[in-house]
Design a protein around this nucleic acid. Structure first.
Lengths: 244, 244
DNA sequence: GGCGCGCATTAAAGTGCTTTAATTCGCACT
DNA sequence: AGTGCGAATTAAAGCACTTTAATGCGCGCC
C-alpha cells in the first residue's frame, strides 16, 4: 500500500462513506505490492486471469488483431481494480501492460469473494465501477466508429482528465499525460502519425494547449461541445442499490 | 410474458439451476408486456433511464455523434435485461430502438432492487451478464478500431449467432439475421455500402452463405480464425461468486 | 559537450472507406 | 400479374487515414 490510506479506500470514499469494517475488507486487497516498469507486460493474452489494485501509475488492457495490430480496451488509473471485467471468463482474453512505472497490489479471486460476501454496499460499488468502465469504452467505441481523428484524440484527453479527477480534484486545470502517441492511437484506432497530426490540429484550433506532457483545455466548453462529451465518472446514482 | 416460462428464466437456466423463489423473483420482472414495432424508438437519448426484459425480437442501444451519424452500442436478444448498464447514471446517455417487431416487459428500478436484496446468486448472474455484454462491446471495439470491413461484418454475424445460441442451441447451423445493412454498419463503424461489399466478399471467399435473411458459415473454422473469434457467451466461470 | 537513443514531427504516396447517384431486387398490396 | 416502395447492389469520384521514410527534438549517459 502507498501512503497513509489505501488507494481503493480513497477512490471509493469519493462516492460514499465507508465503515471501518469495509475499509478493512478493502485494505486486505492491498496487502502485497509489486513495482512494475513502463512498457512491462503484466499479463499476456490467453494467460489465466489475475486481479490487482492499481496503487500508482497507469496501466492498460489490450488485445491484438490477427494481423498483429493492437487495440487498447481499457485504461486504468490509481485506485482502479484491474481484471474484474474478465472475471466471468476462465482465461483472460486480453493482456495487461504498464503505460508508466506503476505499483500494483495483486490479490486472489477469493479476496473479491470475501468483499462480495460481507458487504452489499461494496458489491454495489464494484458493480458501479464496472459500469463506469463500460461507459468509457462505449464513448471510445462511438468515437472510433464515427468520429474524425482530432475528435477521437480529444476524447481520450478529456476522458483521462475526467477519470483522474475522481482521485484528485486538483486536476481541474491541467494534467500530465504520460501516454505515448502510439498508445493514444491504440485507444481509438489511429496510427501514431494521425495522433500527431490531430494534436497539432487541436492546438491550432485552440482546443488544447501543451507544455511538454502537460495538457490543458483553454476553451473547455467548446472542446466538450465538439464531441458531446459528458463526464459520467464524477457523479453516480446509487439510489437503486440495497444497503446504501 | 411469452410462452410457458419467462424468457429470463430460460436464459438464466442455461447457466445455473434456479429455485422456485428465484424463478418467482424473475417472473415479477415480466408481469407487464408491451409490443413495439420495428424501427420504433423506445427511449430517446437523454431521457430518464428505463429498464425492461426483452421477451421477443431484437433491440439495440445507440448514440448519435455531433454531426448526426449514429453508433450502435449494444444489441439485445430475447432474455436480455435492457438498461442495466445505464443504471449508475441518473439520465440515460443513449437511446434504445427496435430492430424488429418486439415484445418488451418494462419494470421499475425497484424490481431490480428486490432481486439484488433477495438473491446473491441472481446478483452474481446479473453481474456476469453485464460482463458478457461488455465483452461483446470490446470485441466490436477491436474490430472497429483495427480490422478491415469484411472482418468487422463477419464479427457481427458470428457474435449474433453466438448470443442466439444461449437461448436456443438449435441455431448451430444457420440463423435468421433481421438486421438492415445500415444497422450492421452502425455496429462497427461502416457505411451501408461497405457492409454490402463486405457481405459480397465474404460470400465469394466461402466464409458465409446467404439465403435471403438466413446466414450460415460453410467453413466455420476458417471464419473464426480469420478474426480470432472466441465465443465468450456460452460458458462462463461462476466459481468466484458467493452463494453459487 | 557531444553522442546515441527513443519518440515526435513532417512530408509524400498509397489505400480503403465514404459519399453520391443510378440500377436492381424483393415483396406487400391492389 | 402489375404497381410501388424500401432496401440492397453496383459504380465512380473524393477524401481521411495509413504506410513508408526522412528529419527533428529532448534527454540520459559516458
Amino acid at each position: 500500500m502507498h501512503g497513509d490510506e489505501s488507494c481503493l479506500v480513497r477512490k471509493i470514499s469519493h462516492y460514499t462513506a465507508l465503515s471501518d469494517t469495509e475499509k478493512h475488507l478493502l485494505n486486505e486487497l492491498e496487502r502485497e505490492s509489486r513495482t512494475v516498469r513502463r512498457h512491462e507486460t503484466l499479463v499476456d493474452e490467453g494467460e489465466t486471469n489475475r486481479l490487482f489494485v492499481l496503487d500508482s501509475g497507469w496501466v492498460y488492457t489490450f488485445i491484438h488483431t490477427p494481423d498483429g495490430r493492437r487495440q487498447i480496451l481499457d485504461l486504468h488509473f490509481p485506485g482502479d481494480v484491474v481484471g474484474t471485467n474478465q472475471i466471468a471468463f476462465a482465461e483472460s482474453t486480453c493482456g495487461i501492460a504498464a503505460a508508466t512505472d506503476a505499483v500494483i497490489c495483486p490479490f486472489p479471486k477469493s479476496g473479491l469473494r470475501s468483499v462480495f460476501s460481507n458487504s452489499p454496499k461494496l458489491t454495489a460499488l464494484f458493480y458501479t465501477f464496472a459500469m463506469i468502465d463500460h461507459a468509457a469504452v462505449l464513448d471510445r467505441l462511438r468515437a472510433t466508429g464515427r468520429m474524425p481523428a482530432a475528435s477521437r484524440v480529444l476524447l481520450v484527453l478529456l476522458q483521462c482528465r475526467a477519470r483522474l479527477r475522481i482521485m484528485d480534484p486538483a486536476y481541474s486545470d491541467e494534467f500530465e499525460l504520460p501516454l505515448h502517441q502510439e498508445v493514444i492511437g491504440d485507444l481509438v484506432g489511429l496510427s501514431n502519425i494521425s495522433v500527431s497530426n490531430a494534436l497539432k490540429q487541436l492546438k491550432e484550433e485552440g482546443l488544447i494547449a501543451r507544455q511538454g506532457r502537460w495538457i490543458s483545455f483553454p476553451n473547455e466548453e467548446r472542446a466538450t461541445q465538439l464531441i458531446d462529451f459528458a463526464d459520467h465518472y464524477y457523479e453516480i446514482d446509487t439510489s437503486w442499490f440495497p444497503g446504501l
